[in-house]
Amino acid sequence: MIAIQVENLTKRFNGLIAVDNISFSINSGEVFGLLGPNGAGKTTIIAMLSTMLKPTSGSASVNNFDILKNEDDVRKSIGIVFQDQSLDEELTAYENMDFHGRLYRIPKKVRQKKIIELLKLVELENKKNNLVKTFSGGMRRRLEIARGLLHEPKVLFLDEPTLGLDPQTRNRLWEYIEKLNKEKGITVILTTHYMEEADRLCDRMAIIDKGKIIALDTSEKLKEEIGGDVITIKSPERDRLYSKINTLSWVKHAEPHDNSVTISLQNAEKHVDEIVNLASGNGIAIDFISIHKPTLEDVFLHYTGRTIREEESGTKDQMRMMRRMGR
């Protein structure tokens, strides 16, 4: 059973191509990740799939409803947690839920029962009569997830669900998401630029960069694709080191980034001393060297030639958090 089918979907903003002719499908019951750096086009994809934005070209269906022709059916069958907060802060948690329930025309009895049930699930039941403006970022996020589930959607979109949350809250949210998926069979599409999040939650993931899907598979397969081991070397003379290493025959792939060089190869243990000798023979200092199995971070680097810049996204997250707090 296919939950989401996307064909040649494209979105242009004036001159900019935000989403560039992408196609993929998601099975029902799957947790599917859209992984990519800031500006990759993740939010734009979700906006089109949730009928909030009209595609420039291409087509897609959600729960077998066409996003252009059956807007209302799509909307009824999805739940969504937007990247930026979308609660009414002057209302209480319960009132926010109630507003949502009324918009989705859930009968009063069912509505009241489900609201309490869901507030319990996200551990906010004892705060139900507090104004949302008194809530922390994590509480708000949990409330938004509970709200998105109120009308029992078959597909749930989560746009950066754990953005700017502390590790503990993040772990909690991951548990909720896993539970929803396992127990209720809800198909989940989530976007993130936390590799750990994608690794832990997603059955399959698409790596997106500049509006294009550059890889799509399970986390294991993506890592296998790189194969063997990864050596990361930090050096003040990165470029010289890189050009030397690139000539070695057993190097499958080497990539300079930030102040390191990342090398993919087989049997790293055997070759690491050669590298060290090569460096010292040429008088290149090495600050740091590590050998590891490929991570999603390496996969991303492999396909895009860049790391997902955590610092960059970090400051952006902080800005978002501040905007949230300032409200």
């Binding site: 059916d73 909307r75 937007f82 709200r147």
Partner: peptide, 13 residues
């Protein structure tokens, strides 16, 4: 600006 409008507009109404 505060995002609440999205919540209303994405509903089937």
């Amino acid at each position: 600006q505060f995002g609440f409008l999205k919540e209303t507009l994405v509903a089937p109404v």
